[in-house]
Design a protein around this nucleic acid. Structure first.
Lengths: 242, 242
DNA sequence: TACATTTAAATGTCTGACATTTTCCCCGCA
DNA sequence: TGCGGGGAAAATGTCAGACATTTAAATGTA
């Protein structure tokens, strides 16, 4: 007799999926304790190692957290923004590097997303994030700054711009886009990028946000995107010519 | 004597991290075969079940794929856009539901992101995606359509809008935003949403994209966002009053 | 040469045991 | 009576070994 459900997958994958469904569909709530490994093994009619493999899968997605000792066990985890950021960044980085995403495609996506934040950032003008932007601009102007530090500062600046929108969901969604681009950005930072030009763009963006002028901010951002894109193309051509 | 590296984590977590690092840093490339479980167990000086738990963690993140049989084993997986979509959607859905993200915040983020796509979509005007949008608009006008189907069609329409930007990285980044909102959107679909109004907005958007008029598309999208936001607020108030 | 069979290598699963961690509870003592 | 320490218990973490299953290559045969 054939089974009704598609059961091609491993037992541990099936069990993980069953528990995942229970969590996603709200049948298990945040903080709730799962049955012990032994109990789960009995329920699903498998051995403890199999159950453990399933639980590790869920732990890898931050869906559960485990605690040793008496009255320990596996608990439904409250997925924090930080954890979600981390996964987002890992996934995005790998996606980009493994699918031969071109510099142009990545760059276009990044600036398009960032542009989505500027109206909100301009409307809210959070002092914290503006201060961060100013501080990073100042750092980028220091003569002794290493290329690595400049690049890191660049990321911090753009993260601040995103966070200035004051929407944590937006920040989460964009974390991957901004952070995952760093390797690709490095590719050109070390060769052709003019720090003066970048600082000028950043200053224009910060000024516009501070003034609440969304249009000016978008324009500056678009020009920065065009500048970066052009730089990337030149580097590519130079490499191809070699 | 205290250990230099933070070694609080489980052995399986440490091993998973070590392999993950190797993949992310490019020391192992796509398609490459990992050592067998027995060999890994020997290398890391742990037992096979522990190695297996580590591998399941990686499999849960789609970093590796396993294959049974002779010359099988664990292989570094090429992370496909589809797999990345899936993870993105799961993570986003949980993040939203577990952190009590308000309808307003979610809605704002979603439309801000979607707005990022319109200039590219208007510039490219891909016939495929325009056809999908038109088809969904037509479906949404059918009188016998169930609420579930209408909502699903709504998602398809917006996915098409995103895909019309012709940038797979952008599509990936937004998949979570669009799909994860569905439960929140349902909340109001079944009560107050006017199908005629929605269809009118969708038509305006499709027309603007087809005409290559990015500004008009953004305006229509912003009005749709305002309409949705307002609707959500009313529903909330009605619930609070009860 | 083509096809069926064997074989070996690997993952998938089970059993049982022991180690470790953590909490609770009870007992002894002041 | 109050308090502190020492099990006891429950749970996860880890190990060892065995068997089942799957898959592809190697082998042998018509």
């Amino acid at each position: 007799m054939e089974t009704a459900k598609p059961q091609k997958a491993d037992l541990s994958a099936q069990i993980a999926q069953a528990i995942r469904d229970a969590i996603v569909e709200g049948r298990m709530i945040t903080g709730e304790r799962l049955p012990s490994e032994a109990e789960l093994a009995e329920q699903f009619n498998v051995s403890r190692p199999t159950v453990r493999e399933a639980l590790k899968r869920l732990a890898a997605q931050s869906l559960i957290r485990t605690q040793r000792g008496a009255f320990g066990g596996a608990f439904v985890n409250r997925l924090s923004y930080e954890e979600a950021y981390g996964q987002q960044i890992t996934t995005s980085t790998l996606l980009l590097s493994m699918n031969g995403v071109s510099f142009e495609t990545a760059c276009e996506a990044r600036y398009a997303l960032e542009r989505a934040c500027t109206p909100l950032a301009a409307a809210r003008r959070a002092p914290d994030h503006l201060a961060t932007m100013r501080a990073e601009i100042h750092r980028q102007g220091q003569p002794g700054l290493s290329d690595e530090s400049f690049c890191a500062s660049d990321v911090t600046f753009h993260r601040a711009l995103v966070d200035a929108a004051g929407n944590p969901v937006l920040s989460y969604q964009l974390a991957g886009a901004v952070e995952a681009m760093q390797p690709l950005m490095n590719m050109i930072t070390f060769t052709a990028r003019s720090r003066e030009a970048i600082v000028a763009f950043h200053t224009r963006i910060a000024d516009a946000i501070e003034a609440g002028d969304s249009t000016a901010a978008e324009t500056a951002l678009e020009e920065l995107a065009a500048y970066t894109l052009n730089l990337g193309r030149n580097v590519m051509e130079a490499r191809a010519a070699r």
